[in-house]
Design a protein around this nucleic acid. Structure first.
Lengths: 387, 387
DNA sequence: TATAGTATTGAATCCGAGC
DNA sequence: CGCTCGGATTCAATACTAT
């Protein structure tokens, strides 16, 4: 269901305790007008400017009180905010839902483009999580163990010995006893999900659009199939798309007619981006092997990926030119390495270059004067000069 | 300097505007008595139970007002809190320091052992960051570019052409023009620093002890050499050790005599754990190659690192025993693989085991009946059974 | 088809102009 | 001096094109 109205008036018409989960992503109190064009040049926007923090909080409080009323006893609310007002919003939720129903704060972390800044680069948002009562729907999700974990040990049962010390349990024959099945690490409250990239197909042109996968995870932990999910500030409808994918029923409300139209369209043909980053992880982008990384760590440089000839550029320029670095590959002769480096360097208009020699294949080659050859095993001594 | 007193009384004796940076890690309002024994059996503890949130906040407010007075105009305060009271503390800091002096919230994230419970596993804490004025000391730190970033392009200058479109800049000869030197990506406000492992040498046995690296980074961004760092709840003295390492002056105050004694000892011989996890990153721990990962992804299993004979355990047990998996290594004959697997399996008291055959080296070997041999290329068909 | 290489986008932030 | 406004800068990660 999709309704174009102020969510307050719509929700007032609802009966008590009919909703299983509410996600809301209201204005963050950024005191800005948010706007964005879609691919056809149509501009969506909403206003996030307020007279005062008090008027902002009052606006939200009346709506949150209503949300509590229509939530089932087993229901949950997720309030998405950023640092602008998260503390006041949590005080507000403590008041309405009660401190004992605070279930946690989910930290959504991501990397994003931004200009440099006198301070730390902001790269997280907060989702406040409260339940209506202590008996709330919660589906445990598990993640893989960290590679640094010693799985051997986790899977062994432990007991206290006569001194009260914890030891690994063994049976009569001295064999190790294993614990029951483990399903992995319980889901943490820190979620590393890529920010919706400017080029992502999933983007529909609505400002502040959230990734579908974020909503999917929230819905998964807090509802079961056929439960009812409500988003009173549904914007471009990400929550509804996620609910639809997961076979939950949904109600979306937004005060903007354009937003509701957009959501309608989007629900007919939901696009969920296959994020390469998400599917394969950052590691997939990192083509350097351990030895190459070790070598490059001796330089103050920027590592280059997807370039056949250049592995890195020195951070410092020389005569206003960048200095490329190439590490000789394992099967590569020195002259082949020189050739690869030169070809790439010409394209970039680079003159001086550095070649790291890692083997002795075909050493007898004339090295052009603009290439500095360094022996990889000397780097720990000499490389420091380039730091 | 190290003082054993309630920080309120000590700070009242200080002159105005003499401190450059204050870090405080007061009780978190856990409403528990915190205690921990060190390796010598000595027990440290402090009381974190309060009549009410109001009395807790009043206690802190009087101290934070005093901190503001003694901070230099260019000074900063870092207040470490966890989710129990972070929102009230931020409201408090807004009052004392002013909303415009809010510099951000640092999210310290870590992975940690914990029993699974009904809810998300808490794995972050918050450090609130305020400055006394808009002119505050801040040292920019830079981190590496993401491997997903195209460094080639980042390093090229761009201009607008006559149509207003952004294009890469070239000089008269058509050569690429490079931008100014880049130092990397400004430090984010999300810090992934391993939680002080219970076995870390750095641990001195004080509850709530923080990693030195965390304090080093806070001190680095907000102070210069010879500046004065104050920790009014210094506990085991981590802040002071970090300040010492970075050549900053320090003042530590704690109400507990034991804490001050401990800190004194610690400052004589500061131990900083070289955290392998931080130095080499999680990746270095992950010794499985892509093919091995591909094979293991066919099973519902837990990957094992740092075990010469076993690569993973199946998630499901069989007759209440764990089933180890080994993938035949590239240079390894089948009998060698069997031998390695058997030796490791005996240690773990495992009976049934799985060996994934990846090559045909020395095939003619008698396979013991408790080893299931699977051909790696069949896995995509057969492996599904193990999911 | 896989990989290398190029073009494009956007929102937080800074900075300078204008008032 | 403080404000707003607009333009420039930044970089992550995608889409697209060429090889």
């Amino acid at each position: 269901m999709l309704i174009n109205d102020d969510c307050l008036y719509t929700m007032r018409k609802f009966e008590d305790e009919i909703i299983d989960m509410v996600y809301l992503d209201p204005p963050f109190f950024t005191q800005k007008r948010q706007s964005l064009k879609n691919r056809d040049g149509f501009e969506y926007n909403f206003n996030d400017t307020w007279d005062s923090m008090d008027s902002y909080l009052l606006y939200l409080k009346t709506r949150i009180v209503e949300i509590k009323r229509i939530l089932k006893k087993t229901g949950s609310i997720f309030l998405h905010c950023d640092k602008s007002a998260s503390h006041y919003l949590r005080v507000l939720l403590d008041e309405v839902f009660g401190v004992t129903n605070f279930r946690g704060e989910i930290i959504w972390i991501y990397k994003r483009w931004s200009n440099s800044h006198n301070g730390l680069m902001n790269s997280h948002q907060t989702i406040l999580y409260y339940s209506k009562s202590k008996k709330f729907t919660f589906n445990k999700l598990y993640t893989k163990y960290s590679p640094a974990t010693n799985i051997d040990q986790i899977l062994q049962d432990r007991v206290r010995n006569s001194d009260g010390k914890v030891i690994y349990k063994k049976d009569r024959d001295g064999n190790i006893v294993f614990t029951n099945e483990k399903r992995g690490v319980p889901l943490s409250d820190v979620w590393d999900i890529p920010f919706l990239n400017p080029k992502a197909r999933e983007r529909v042109g609505y400002p502040t659009q959230k990734p579908i996968i974020l909503l999917e995870r929230l819905i998964e932990i807090s509802t079961n199939e056929n439960d009812i999910v409500l988003d009173p500030f549904c914007g471009s409808g990400t929550t509804l798309v996620a609910a639809d994918i997961l076979n939950r029923k949904y109600i979306g409300i937004d005060i903007s007619e354009e937003a509701v139209q957009l959501t309608k369209l989007r629900l007919k043909n939901p696009v969920k981006t296959e994020s390469n980053l998400l599917n394969s992880g950052v590691k997939a982008y990192d083509k350097k092997n351990d030895i190459e990384k070790q070598i490059l760590s001796n330089f103050s440089c920027h590592t280059v990926q997807r370039n056949k000839g250049i592995d890195a550029f020195l951070s410092r320029k020389h005569n206003n030119m960048l200095i490329p670095i190439r590490i000789q590959k394992e099967q590569e002769t020195l002259s082949e390495a020189v050739e690869m480096l030169n070809r790439a360097a010409v394209k970039k208009g680079c003159n001086l270059k550095i070649l790291i020699k890692t083997n002795s294949k075909d050493d007898n080659v004339n090295i052009p004067p603009d290439i500095i050859i360094m022996d990889s095993y000397q780097l720990t001594i000499d490389g420091i000069l380039f730091k």
